[in-house]
Design a protein around this nucleic acid. Structure first.
Length: 572
DNA sequence: CTGGGGAGGGGGCCC
DNA sequence: TGGGCCCCCTCCCCA
């Protein structure tokens, strides 16, 4: 019995030892397998990340190629639209010329990459012919454009800072991915070349701006971006280029993340819609997904100062913070009452650039912006206010990736508007805290800026159901529709003539009053209409830009040429 | 050439 | 804040 007990004890001991050994072995196996498994998981994760990265790059490349192809097709299909752009922003450059002034630098819609070279556009300007070079913007890789979108860019111009260094920092992040931003300013020497305020942040795109003017020795900048419309909305930041607000003023330059309507060129109506064509192409080109910009005014140049310095070249190297400006010839004729005619032949349009934003601020802005984007508004605007002072440490590239362009295009209308006191620096009683990111014009509320920006973006959300014409404003559409309805609500009390626009009636009534508020300073002839005076001035200037192909006879107006040709034709 | 109208672009203001 | 209107300006066209 005792032996039996001992035997059982021994058996139990052996069983325990064996069990322990088995457990140990099992644990060891589990640990080994677990380690292997972990290793495999880690490797798989790494592989996944790598593959995902490759996939993103491939997708971006495909998207970019598609966008390039589309844009190339559009540009090739509508090559003349480039001239229409001139027309839009010069206001007068239609067809054969007929230019009285305006910008001497032109915007190529962003993304129209096939319009690559400096294409001289010959515009007959008065007695001479000016060869205008088109600003060329080239898109570039979009590889680093993160889906998160908004980028962070900071640009600083502090006294003594080397702007080259600043730019290098800003572009450096994308340098390995995209071609560096190239800006050529043929009018300036390399030493005086003003560094472009184009900051390639994410590599979504690089911009090549080439601008050259024949008669100007000033630098000008322009920004544009382009991307695949169908892909993730491009994020860009636009700086500004234009005469700066008053010193020490701070303005909010907002982004317009409007889900821009992209119109195909098939939408373009007939020949009567050339303007719309332009708008559409331009809209397509712009299509900014998000534009956000933080701006602090920086230059000491007032508008007048800009005018004064408009023909000089500014260098931003080192401590020079002055703006780049562009001199635009523009003839504006405005006559009030019997006051002498005023001809500002050297109306200037000014380009300047600068922008400042703090990295953290920008991230903050981005967050706000992205938050706002979730709101289903048509075109939410986002403002950033009270920017912190600029920090020298730049972090131009964030994880989301995006672009910052610190440039702005000024339309010739701007000078006029600001001449009326509507500019950002006009110091109106109403504080105009909201700046157009394109022309820096100030507005008192976001809605106005949004509407105004359509001037630059070409967005025409309101279309006529009768003729497919498109308008940037609803009231303009409504007014246009009187063309179809025949409605003429404004009637002249003197002659019962009716007009569709109140201004037309007012203008017409000069017929009855005999009022001729526009007088020529050369011959003291007076005119009831400003356009008539304008045409008359060509007589004095001897401007005859319209030449008959048949007999070589020259005319000051296209209509004269047309009449002449009709007579010739009827005679034959 | 001149006179004049049609129509569109754009800003400001009011409700 | 958005709609609507007024106003100014400009281009184009035609008589």
């Amino acid at each position: 019995m005792a032996n039996c007990m001992v035997f059982h004890t021994q058996i139990a001991s052996i069983m325990e030892v064996l069990a322990n050994a088995a457990v140990t072995e099992i644990c060891k196996l589990v640990d080994d397998d677990y380690a292997v498994l972990r290793l495999e998981i880690t490797q798989s994760q790494k592989e996944n990340r790598g593959l995902r990265r490759k996939l993103q790059l491939l997708e971006l490349k495909v998207a970019r190629d598609r966008a390039d192809r589309t844009i190339r097709e559009r540009v090739l299909a509508s090559r003349p639209s480039s001239v229409k752009i001139l027309d839009r922003y010069r206001g007068t450059a239609r067809g054969e010329g007929h230019l009285t002034g305006g910008h001497r630098s032109f915007v190529k819609p962003a993304g129209h990459n096939t319009w690559r070279d400096d294409q001289p556009i010959t515009v007959d300007e008065g007695s001479g012919t000016s060869t205008q070079h088109v600003i060329v913007i080239e898109s570039a890789d979009a590889e680093a454009a993160g889906p998160g979108g908004l980028s962070l860019v900071k640009q600083e111009r502090t006294e003594g800072e080397d702007p080259t260094h600043s730019r290098d920092i800003q572009t450096g992040a994308a340098a390995g991915v995209v071609p560096p931003v190239a800006v050529e300013d043929l009018a300036t020497t390399p030493q005086h070349r003003t560094r472009p305020s184009i900051t390639e942040v994410s590599g979504t795109l690089s911009a090549v701006l080439k601008s050259e003017t024949e008669t100007l020795t000033v630098t000008h900048r322009l920004l544009h971006t382009g991307s695949d419309h169908g892909s993730d909305p491009e994020r860009l930041l636009l700086g500004r280029l234009g005469c700066s607000p008053a010193p020490d003023s701070k303005y909010l330059l907002y982004g317009n993340p409007s889900p821009r309507t992209v119109h195909s060129h098939q939408d373009s109506g007939g020949a009567s819609e050339t303007g719309n064509d332009l708008s559409r192409s331009y809209t397509t080109a712009m299509d900014p997904g998000i534009m956000l910009l933080v701006l602090e005014t920086q230059t000491d140049l007032s508008r007048a100062d800009c005018n004064q310095y408009s023909s000089s070249v500014y260098s931003e190297g080192g401590i020079d913070k002055k703006s780049e400006v562009i001199l635009i010839d523009e003839v504006t004729v405005k006559m009030e009452g019997d006051a002498p005619l005023t001809c500002n032949a050297d109306e200037t349009h000014l380009w300047e650039r600068y922008s400042q934003s703090n990295t953290s601020d920008f991230l903050d802005c981005r967050d706000r912006l992205e938050t706002n984007l979730n709101v289903a508004t048509h075109s939410p605007l986002h403002t950033v206010r009270d920017r912190d002072p600029v920090s020298p440490s730049m972090a131009p590239y964030n994880s989301h990736g995006s672009i910052f362009f610190d440039q702005v295009f000024n339309s010739d209308k701007r000078a006029r508007d600001e001449g009326w006191g509507g500019g950002a620096t006009s110091g109106n009683s109403k504080e105009k805290r909201f700046l157009c990111m394109f022309c820096n014009k100030g507005f008192s509320c976001l809605r106005k800026v949004e509407i105004h920006q359509r001037v630059h973006t070409g967005e025409n959300p309101f279309s006529c159901t009768q003729c497919e014409k498109r308008f940037s404003r609803q009231d303009h559409l409504k007014r246009h529709q009187r063309v179809h309805t025949g409605e003429k609500p404004f009637s002249c009390p003197q002659c019962e003539k009716r007009f569709s626009q109140a201004g037309d009636l007012k203008r017409h009534q000069r017929v009855h009053t005999g009022e001729k508020p526009f007088s020529c300073t050369q011959c003291h002839m007076r005119f009831a209409l400003a356009g008539n005076l304008k045409m008359h001035l060509k007589v004095h200037k001897g401007e005859r830009p319209f030449t008959s192909m048949h007999c070589g006879k020259r005319f000051s107006e296209r209509s004269y040429l047309r009449t002449h040709q009709q007579k010739k034709h009827s005679a034959v």
